[in-house]
Structure formats: structure tokens, C-alpha cells
Nucleic acid binder design. Structure first.
Lengths: 88, 88
DNA sequence: CCTGAATATCGTATTATCGCGATATATAGA
DNA sequence: TCTATATATCGCGATAATACGATATTCAGG
């Protein structure tokens, strides 16, 4: 029975605990990928989306990869995916 | 494939996304129960503990029951328990 | 090596959260 | 009903999160 690191895990949960960020994760789980695309669909300023993606990346929920000029993000297939399952 | 209510679910995650609240949930999962007891173990002001418990209760993560003069809290056996499993 | 499209970072005003002492409420028992 | 114990709520200063325009960075193609 592993022990929970409360500080660390609460940081992680805080990172995903935002309506826009949950939606971003959900979109990335079903394949939308580049920042411009996400920005257009969510109809929010590009800087706002970029910041949210940065928070998720820093928390280890997403990772970016380059596709030409564009940057795409993918969901790290671990805790995030399982938590999204639970929220459904 | 159910749809996620991003507003609602992010509210829920935000409620549990706090080191003290995660610890409270963990303690309540392994049977500590009354507020005084929780307060002593965590060594924090009673008002602080009470507020955290209130937030968790409002989010539907805990529910209270009376045991004489004392109020005990129990973890609602649903999303919370499953998420705690994932965080371990 | 410019240009423009794509993305990240900065600055900052606004709003929300946190922590905690003080105070209120509830209730069991004398 | 008075008291003591248990818990909740209030008030508020301190801190952190949010949103977003402005600006900087990156890089492919001409």
C-alpha cells in the first residue's frame, strides 16, 4: 500500500481542475492537436490557451511535439486518462 | 460514451485538490472520524479543519453523521475513492 | 536573411482561495 | 437553565489563480 504525497498530488489535481483545461485534455484524447486548432475551437485568445497548455505540460499531463511549424500536444497515458474515465 | 460536464467536474477536482484535504480524505478512508481527532492529528486550528471538511462536504466527497456530541465524516464511496486509488 | 504564421512569455488588473482568530451555534449532562 | 465541549461560520489580510493584450521567440519558405 503506497503512501500518497499530498503536496505533489494536490498540485497535479489543481493543474487539471479547470473547465478549460479539462476540455483541452478531452479534446486531445480524441485527437485534436495543434494549438491554433484548439484556440479556434475553444474561441479563446491564443495566449490563454497557450498558458493552459503550459500548466498541463508542467504538471506532466501533456507533452508537446513538433509537426512542422505547428506544436501538437498529446495526453500522457497515465493518471490523467484514468481520472478522465472516472469523471465521465 | 458519456459527456463530461467540465464546469461541474472541475469544481469537484478543485475541492479535493489541496494537500490538507487529500490527507483528510485519506485519514477518513482509514477510519479516523471526528473533527476534534482530525484537528489534533493534523495540528491545525479547528476552524481551518472545519472549513476544509465543509468544502469536501459541499463537493459531495464526504458526508457527516452525528455520534453523540461529535460529528464524524465519511468518504462517499464513489469518484473520490477511485481517484485516491489512482494517486497512490 | 526577410516575412509571416505559430506559439510562448510578460505585465498586470481582477477575482478567488487560504489561513486563522474571533465569534456563534448546538447539545449533553449537571 | 447553566456549563463545557464540539463544531460551524464570520471577517479579513495575505497569497495565488485567471484572463488577456502586448510583445517576444521560433522556424519554414521564398
Amino acid at each position: 500500500m503506497k503512501k500518497i504525497n499530498y503536496e505533489k498530488e494536490s498540485e497535479f489535481l489543481k493543474a487539471i481542475a479547470h473547465p478549460v483545461r479539462l476540455k483541452l485534455i478531452d479534446m486531445l484524447l480524441s485527437d485534436e492537436c495543434c494549438v491554433t486548432e484548439l484556440t479556434e475551437i475553444l474561441n479563446l485568445p491564443q495566449s490563454t490557451i497557450s498558458q493552459h497548455l503550459g500548466i498541463l505540460k508542467k504538471a506532466g499531463a501533456l507533452y508537446p511535439y513538433k509537426s512542422g511549424v505547428k506544436t501538437c500536444y498529446k495526453v500522457k497515458d497515465d493518471k490523467v486518462t484514468r481520472i478522465m474515465e472516472i469523471l465521465k
